[in-house]
Design a protein around this nucleic acid. Structure first.
Lengths: 147, 147
DNA sequence: TTTAATTGCGCAATCG
DNA sequence: GCGATTGCGCAATTAA
């Protein structure tokens, strides 16, 4: 599957209009030094391309490049899809982490509350651990509280 | 799919700049499909395209499409970049969350250790506040651990 | 220097 | 009918 086609850039939307009803493959020609300022080219004769498109070697090169292009574009597309996939994965991971944070926060909160409660209990009823013998109804000073 | 594609490519604006003095010789006609496994055709005669490329309307359509293509590709590229950017942002966010989890875990661990220590103290030295008479040296069962 | 890979661009078919 | 997409080939450029 191949076809020829020329590619290049021309000035504006003005068609050279030189050729009327002839079939000719578009050609890229090296800029003619004498044709610098834009020149009408002979309708009956066209510049032959310095690159002969009929060349076997040319066709081979083209085909190889077409292949390479295809490959490259496939990769590019694949990469894009992978990136999108990555986004989705990261989003999921994020939600997971958020949930875990929520859980840990809750646990922490519970523990802290327990601490507070216990601190109050200490303040209200308990004496230092060192004394074991008699009951020492020592009114506790004040509750130590940290938060 | 499509087998024929012959373009006399001519553009209107924005040239690649470094086009080393190339000049396009325009002209129409579909390419020779001989190499495509089609029939070999005599150089002197070719099938005419049903679309006349000299048509003013044709050129207009082409130009508009070229514009649309350009636009579409720009968007596509932009979207890809945005997606990549999104990945980066999510990665950062992830690290942030991981750090937070680490911190919370540590806090939690500390609090739990405190609890354990206290439990041991209780087991070793303290009796329930309500009981004042007999000492009840009850060996602690085991540390309650959850994680 | 040769060759593969990438990139910009136009054409045509197709989609919405 | 029309702009938006998409596949494809060509050619210029950039890497290997």
């Amino acid at each position: 599957m191949n076809l020829d086609q020329a590619h290049a850039t021309l000035s504006s939307s003005s068609l050279p209009a030189a050729v009327a009803g002839l079939q000719q493959v578009p050609q890229l020609v090296p800029a003619d030094p004498s044709a610098a300022g834009g020149k009408a080219l002979p309708p009956s004769k066209m510049k032959k391309p310095s690159v002969d498109k009929d060349s076997e070697e040319y066709r081979q090169r083209r085909e190889r490049n077409n292949l390479a292009v295809k490959k490259s574009r496939m990769r590019s597309k694949q990469k894009a899809m992978d990136t999108q996939q990555r986004v989705n994965e990261l989003k999921e991971e994020n939600e997971r982490l958020e949930a875990k944070i929520k859980l840990l926060s809750k646990e922490l909160s519970v523990l802290k509350d327990l601490f507070l409660e216990h601190a109050h209990n200490l303040a209200d009823n308990v004496q230092p651990p060192a004394a074991v013998d008699g009951a020492s109804p020592v009114p506790n000073g004040g509750p130590a509280n940290g938060q």
